[in-house]
């Protein structure tokens, strides 16, 4: 089998990924402190860090969306039904038998169908819900115009649901990155940008 080394993740993409990663972790820790789950930085410090991290996160997401459109990388997140069964089968059985990954990576097709679904869900659902509920939480206090928002309850509960989903995402994500060719393959790729991929033109053509 012929292989070649390609730049899978661009400089911006890696910057986006790791900055988003640390911001989500910081938002999670400070957010759950504000929620009363534990004490760490101190309540007031957590509130201030959470607000600042939220702004940083908003700016980063805006940059990422801009980048996705000019680089056409948004195509990576368009869901596909192709291979989805194969991918599920791989995780529930193939992986234990040493089977090959059903999805081959290319620059414009670096995500498997399950990743596409989950990441799209994050980008169009969880992040917007967290950002909108979060900024309402921060700034939309006690008014009744243009819409009445009696208290923080609804906003806060939606925000907490989003937070729990992100914790679960983080756990599963951290585990699944170990399922590459070797346990560290995916991590290395996200750091260096490069990954050794199969040079099987046929397979790649069929995939898209």
């Amino acid at each position: 089998m012929k292989t070649k080394k390609i730049e899978l993740y661009s400089k911006f993409e890696r910057f986006w990924h790791w900055t988003q990663g640390v911001l989500v972790i910081l938002l999670g820790i400070t957010g759950f402190e504000i929620h009363g789950s534990f004490r760490l930085f101190g309540y007031e410090t957590s509130v201030r860090l959470h607000s600042a991290a939220a702004w940083a996160f908003l700016i980063l997401i805006a940059l990422a969306i801009f980048w996705m459109f000019i680089s056409k990388q948004y195509k990576n997140f368009i869901p596909t039904s192709k291979n989805i069964k194969a991918q599920i089968n791989y995780y529930i059985s193939g992986i234990f038998k040493g089977a090959a990954h059903p999805t081959k990576k290319t620059k414009l097709d670096k995500l498997n169908p399950l990743q596409r679904l989950v990441y799209l869900g994050l980008i169009i659902l969880v992040f917007p819900v967290q950002l909108i509920s979060g900024f309402l939480y921060m700034y939309y206090h006690y008014p009744n115009k243009p819409v009445e928002l009696t208290g923080l309850e609804t906003v806060a509960i939606i925000h907490v649901i989003g937070a729990f989903l992100l914790v679960v995402f983080l756990i599963v994500h951290l585990y699944l990155i170990t399922t590459g060719t070797t346990p560290l393959t995916n991590l290395k790729a996200m750091i260096t940008g490069f990954e050794v991929v199969e040079e099987d033109e046929e397979l790649i053509k069929n995939q898209v």
């Binding site: 890696r14 910057f15 990663g21 640390v22 991290a53 940083a56």
Partner: peptide
């Protein structure tokens, strides 16, 4: 891109808004 810039973002958040 992987370390210095993300760390800078976190540093700014902690030192200016903490």
């Amino acid at each position: 891109v992987v370390f210095i810039l993300p760390a800078l973002v976190i540093y700014v958040i902690f030192s200016f808004y903490g």
